[in-house]
Computed example of a mutant assay.
Amino acid sequence: MAEPTTPKRNWLQRLIGRSKTTIPVIRLHGVIAAEQRQGRLNIASVAPLLKRAFSVKSAPVIAIIVNSPGGSPVQSRLIAKRIRDLADEHNKPVLVFVEDAAASGGYFIAVAGDEIIVDPSSIVGSIGVIMAGFGFVGALEKLGIERRVHTAGNNKSTLDPFLPEKQSDIERIKQFEIDIHNVFIDVVKTRRGAKLRAADDALFTGEWWTGIRAVDLGLADSIGDIHEVLHTRYGKDIELKVIEPKRPWFGVPRIGFAAGLAGDISATVEDRSVWARFGL
């Protein structure tokens, strides 16, 4: 009997034939701030995750889940820029999936994606800049407390909550906000381009919309979720590899337990106030 013309596949070939398509997934959840605390997003905490995700050479795409009400404009831009730099370097598309919110700085990060996919009820947009504080003018006098402040520079006491607001300070702060706002607008226009389907005075007022409305405006591309979209585009035989921060064996030492606890509580209250602006 003649030998078969087609040789049997060896174990390695069978293994390759059964291998799944790996897609790295990075979850960016939290308020964006430079401070190094759990639940905060900044370039220091996000950059290692991005590096690990883009190092998966076989991955056909990088998936990023965004759930953030915003925060630091600087950290937002740095994260978005790092995403684009790595995407260009590795020639990989980036899909961004929005959960509850991609607002303000969260949307700044989202536009780094080649596509933005949202839930119908996601909060999207808030392309603006806000600075807020409190005024306690007269409070110390009522308490019988004398405050002593000495500065070098006429504008060094800007935003001092115990001094009356000066019109010159308000004008300088407004220009500061406008400068940052213009950076935000330029990035959105550069990334979204012809996809935007509304005038500037409608899109860039700081207003936010539902996901379904954001698609109509061109701020997002489509409605969907990560599992549905990735399985539809890349087949059923895929493996989502969640890229998470590496946990140290031992906790990071703190200087003073009480001080650290007080700082954590303060940060939690601050974060909740940012989320609360969007009813979340």
Rank of each mutant, 00 (worst) to 15 (best):
F134A: 02
F134E: 01
F134Y: 02
F134W: 00
G135F: 00
G135R: 12
G135D: 03
G135Y: 03
G135P: 01
G135A: 07
F136L: 07
F136A: 07
F136H: 06
F136W: 02
F136E: 00
V137R: 05
V137G: 01
V137P: 00
V137W: 04
G138M: 10
G138C: 09
G138V: 04
G138Q: 06
A139Q: 03
A139D: 01
A139P: 01
L140T: 10
L140D: 09
L140I: 05
L140A: 13
L140Y: 14
E141C: 06
E141T: 13
E141L: 12
E141K: 15
E141Y: 09
K142I: 12
K142N: 08
K142D: 05
K142C: 10
L143G: 15
L143I: 14
L143V: 14
L143K: 14
G144S: 10
G144I: 11
G144F: 07
G144T: 08
G144E: 04
G144W: 03
G144Q: 05
I145V: 15
I145T: 12
I145G: 03
I145W: 09
E146D: 15
E146K: 15
E146P: 08
R147S: 10
R147Q: 13
R147D: 04
R147F: 13
R147K: 14
R147E: 11
R148Y: 09
R148S: 14
R148V: 15
R148G: 06
R148L: 15
H150V: 15
H150K: 13
T151A: 09
T151W: 03
T151Q: 06
A152D: 04
A152F: 12
A152P: 01
A152H: 11
G153F: 12
G153N: 07
G153Y: 05
N154W: 09
N154V: 08
N154M: 07
N154H: 03
N154S: 11
N155T: 11
N155H: 05
N155I: 01
N155P: 01
N155Q: 06
N155C: 07
K156D: 03
K156H: 03
S157Y: 01
S157T: 02
S157A: 08
S157C: 00
S157Q: 02
S157H: 07
T158N: 08
T158R: 07
T158E: 00
T158G: 04
T158I: 14
T158V: 14
T158H: 05
T158P: 01
L159D: 00
L159S: 10
D160V: 06
D160W: 11
D160P: 08
D160A: 11
P161R: 13
P161G: 09
P161F: 10
P161L: 12
P161Q: 06
F162W: 14
F162H: 08
F162K: 10
F162D: 06
F162I: 12
L163V: 12
L163R: 12
L163W: 06
L163Q: 09
